[in-house]
Design a protein around this nucleic acid. Structure first.
Lengths: 392, 392
DNA sequence: GGGTATATGTTCTCTGCGGGAACATTTTAA
DNA sequence: TTAAAATGTTCCCGCAGAGAACATATACCC
């Protein structure tokens, strides 16, 4: 039995999938939206920029930029300041800066703590509330904490205008961006956290996997800033979280479970993993084993070598511009940089002698807050005039 | 040493990567281009469509569609026919069909043969020339063959207007879409095939990896039609080629070497692979072993199980909507469907009981020609008015 | 066979948006 | 003080799609 190896005729194609069908028509107001989006995106990631800079970057006309910036100012998203002294010839250009009273909330429920932050549109964490918990919090705990902490922050920062909230959850989140399908360490299963939070807040909620949001943060303001193709591995008490950026887009997968590199098989004769399989990366290289090997150089080296194997495997699948390591994997890498690099060089499938770039994540405790907030900001960046801001 | 766990302040961001900077401004003619592109894309993938259908799909106005279709007809890309009898009330809508004299060439140099095809814009292979070779062809052989075969096809089909050519090469192709960095089975290394072909042809050349182009073809007109997230594995004499679609986009990687799943480690104590590592999928599961196990059920089952392991591993990394198998992997799957499915179910990292969809590629010998042609058509689909068509 | 309802093609006008020219403003340099 | 350079502002133009009005082609009903 072989594949259809028919002649020149093609089979009939009754159904046309959405992506292949005629895209929704583009109208003039789409143009406007796109241009507004470009400007907000630029000041979001790039901070204050002059109008002249925006004119050059976009290729749009001075007059057009003027109109767009005016509209953004009226929307309350940016402020125009008089220029700083530049020393250059000519009339100084006005400086467009994002208004830092525009913010997003970010929730991070974890095994041992609940945290809520407010992140301004320039990526700074402007407020933070954290509470340690003895037992893993229930969804209701998380929602109640979020409501109280938000109320508290609102009192502290009365002028804050909120675009939405993001929640970074250590577990599998469905593609709907709302349902936590399984968060083993929290003991959650099929919890619609987005709906629960929506009952407490008046703005949109985006729920996502913590590793995805961590990578998003590092891409936006951290070690992976602007890098198009990134593989991210983060080691924490709850195992190894993974995420990948592919061509500038987050790898999500069909159901939202993409990037679970903690469960890639790294040793065919490895130990049993909690997921039911054997030899998963997060079983072979977990915090416990790392602690145990802390004073045993050969064992520690072996773990570094395991990390290198995982990196090499991901390298041949993704060919990333950068492999980013966070949590205890970042620490392990820092402790054995040369060994890891050498081992990856040895194992990596590469036609050239160029090394795989490996770096350590650097946003630390701000990472998940920033990442979750980035998710919440995304609709605003895409359609600045179409997303309402509400008082917290 | 820990990651920067600073307070609320963000580090300064001196450089802004291109993706984050203000995007190029959108002008009115971008709108036009986008809409023309939508229509050509729709008839390319969906075949003949009525104007009324296009109006509904795009949401554009009847009058706008009229103008767009007229422009496409003037460009020689589509033809409007009187409606077929539909039996419906009302004036019958005109049928817009792609002009099949618009074509792309597709070259496939392989170990044992050279093949050139002409593929019409509706995806049909309208001409084909093939020659078997005793020894792997040199780049010069491939170019000479392409020139002669193209001349031959031109004589046979005088009216053909060509948008470009694609070449599907069994090896690593650089991100530039021109240079074959390494094609071990052909014995090519650092060959700028695109430049060599450009000296012979008057149209743009796109060179790519054969697995990528195979998946592109199956996505366009085959088993993976329109599926957003696909992992593809193809077994051939030259090993196992891999490719992936992520969110509707081909996984390319930073240098163009993404998707080399043939070299993912599948057994930590496996045999030495030609790439220098051990236990690579294409070493553990190659054509030779498959032949050897043809009459040994347990050995054959073991190979099927190896395939299942690979699928499960890819599943946890990509969470694909579909795993597509071609070549001997497709045959192996067909011979042991239940075993593979059961083993994948057992190994796959999934929170739900839903099975991973696995299918066999079905375009057969047309696959690489169609895929390579798709690459060549891409610029035309994106900017129908901006890409010249030349006589072959 | 003729009239009506329905759907679509065609034409014309209107609106929104970006481009660009001309002019105003603000700085540096001579 | 004047000139040059760069940018902001204003006003007008052209392009593209929306939509109304009208023309055309089919099915259905009598």
């Amino acid at each position: 039995m072989t594949e259809d190896a028919t002649g020149t005729d093609m089979p009939a194609q009754p159904e046309v999938p959405a992506r292949m069908a005629a895209a929704r028509g583009s109208r003039n107001d789409h143009t406007r939206r796109h241009n507004l989006s470009s400007l907000v995106t630029a000041v979001h990631y790039g901070g204050p920029l002059t109008r002249a800079q925006l004119t050059r970057d976009t290729g749009l006309n001075r007059s057009t930029i003027g109109g767009l910036v005016t509209e953004l100012a009226e929307l309350g998203l940016v402020i125009e300041d008089a220029a700083a002294e530049t020393g250059a010839v000519g009339r100084p250009s006005l400086i467009v800066r994002p208004r830092v009273d525009v913010a997003a909330l970010a929730l991070h429920p974890d095994v041992d703590a609940l945290e809520l932050g407010a992140v301004a549109i320039d990526g700074t964490v402007v407020a933070r509330r954290r509470t340690s918990v003895d037992a893993p919090p229930t969804p209701a705990d998380a929602v109640a904490f979020a409501r109280e902490a938000a109320r508290d922050i609102a009192a502290e920062m009365p002028g804050l205008r909120v675009v939405g909230a993001g929640a970074a959850v250590p577990g599998l989140v469905a593609i709907d961006g709302s349902t936590v399908v399984a968060a083993p360490h929290l003991g959650w299963r099929d919890v619609d956290l987005g709906a629960a939070l929506a009952e407490v807040f008046d703005f949109p909620i985006a729920v996502g996997n913590d590793a995805n949001m961590g990578l998003r943060a590092e891409w936006s303001f951290g070690s992976a800033r602007g890098v198009d193709t990134v593989v991210y591995l983060n080691g924490s008490a709850s195992g190894i979280g993974g995420a990948a950026l592919v061509g500038g887009r987050m790898l999500r997968g069909g159901r939202g479970y993409g990037g679970e590199f903690g469960h890639m098989m790294i040793r065919s004769d490895g130990d049993r993993c909690s997921c039911g399989r054997s030899g998963c990366l997060e079983t072979e290289l977990n915090a416990h084993r790392l602690d145990a090997a802390a004073h045993d150089a050969p064992a520690f080296d072996a773990l570094a070598s395991t990390l290198a194997t995982a990196i090499a495997n991901l390298e041949c699948a993704f060919d990333p511009d950068l492999v980013l390591l966070g949590g205890y994997l970042g620490a392990l890498f820092d402790a054995r940089r040369d060994l890891v690099a050498a081992r990856v060089r040895e194992l990596a499938f590469r036609p050239d002698a160029e090394d795989v770039a490996i770096a350590r994540a650097r946003l630390g405790r701000n990472r998940l807050l920033i990442g979750a907030a980035e998710r919440a900001f995304a609709p605003l960046l895409e359609d600045p005039a179409g997303v309402p801001l509400v008082a917290l």
